[in-house]
Simulated assay, not measured.
Amino acid sequence: MTDLDSLKRDMTRHADRMGFDTQPNPTGVPGLSLVRSRAPTPLDVVDYRPIFCLVLQGAKQTVMGDTALTFAAGQTLIVGLDLPTTARIVTASAGAPYLSLGLEIDIALLRELMAGLPEDALPPPRTEYRCSAMTVTTADPALVDAMARLYRLHEQPDDLPVLAPLTVREIHYRLLRSPEAPLLASLTRPDSHASRIARAIGRIRREFDNALPVADLAREAGMSASAFHEHFRSLTGTTPLQYQKTLRLMEARRRLTDTAESVSAIAFAIGYESPTQFSREYSRQFGRPPRAERALRTA
């Protein structure tokens, strides 16, 4: 089995050679990224997609609704849904940077693996009402070993096309056999609460700039409006309206940085009827008004 220290040394050499820092950096292995930060970071909005994250050094904190989850060296984070939230690196220094590996979770692959498991190997049933889309747990040695083998394929280009898919498959299989398997297994069942909420989230993401009444989203999920609201909040830590608002403001931030559109044009483009309301909510989310954001990011 691979130990965390040897993997940490390999990642540090790689990060030094490539100049990696802070943002998720591609490792050369499809779907696998590396993050290194030499200092703590401020709380900021992060758009998580389904991901399995292994922390090698330091610690990071993610805030989901009223709950703050901290995951540190030797722990893993599993995110099962597309989830805009806030996060920050809380433990990092020049001598001991934050280091983590993140692998995209393939729900279709999980579904395929679930279909092939014998009945007695399936994850046990779980009450979904209290289920969360984000969980932290102690790293399983077998998963650490598999992640290390996958990561080290970036130095084996001849082996990468053949062995990477096999190792990714192994990691997904081991995730299904882990203590957090019920969370992921629920996402593979089309009639589960988690899958129904995921379908509604897909619509919010496609149509974030449109008015989306909760009653319409609930019908799409096959739930009553009250049940939909309860399950949505239980899984994501937020409400459908706030989820959509966060997506709008994240898109606004991107446009402020990448385009020359006026603040008013951006406000209308992302679904706001009032530029004043947009500026007020943008300031509340990011701590500065849109014009100050543009000046900061284009300086």
Rank of each mutant, 00 (worst) to 15 (best):
D106E: 09
R280E: 01
L113T: 12
G31Q: 04
S283K: 14
Q156I: 11
G65E: 02
E293C: 13
A221F: 03
A299K: 12
T27K: 00
K245N: 05
H229Y: 00
D158E: 11
R17Q: 03
T239S: 09
S192C: 07
S264D: 15
I197F: 01
A142Y: 09
A148G: 12
L184H: 00
E180S: 10
L183C: 03
R206T: 02
Q242F: 05
P50Y: 11
L235Y: 03
L54W: 13
A148N: 02
V144H: 06
P275T: 11
E180P: 04
T86R: 12
L4V: 06
T12P: 04
E155M: 09
Y151D: 04
A108P: 12
T259S: 15
H229W: 01
T12S: 08
G287M: 02
Y243I: 00
P290H: 05
M11R: 00
P24V: 01
A68Q: 10
P179E: 08
L7Q: 01
L256C: 06
E170Y: 11
V168G: 08
T298S: 10
H172I: 07
G74M: 07
E251R: 14
Y48L: 15
H193Y: 11
P240L: 02
S6C: 10
P213N: 00
E251H: 08
T127E: 10
T85D: 06
A121R: 04
S274C: 13
Y151M: 06
E261A: 14
S192F: 09
L110C: 06
E128F: 01
T239L: 02
P30L: 04
M64S: 10
Y98M: 06
V63G: 03
R233E: 04
T76C: 14
E273V: 14
T298M: 15
T259A: 13
L32N: 05
E170H: 13
N210T: 06
D145R: 10
L113M: 13
S186G: 04
E273W: 15
R288I: 15
T27F: 05
R255Q: 13
V263A: 12
V63S: 08
A194N: 07
I197G: 00
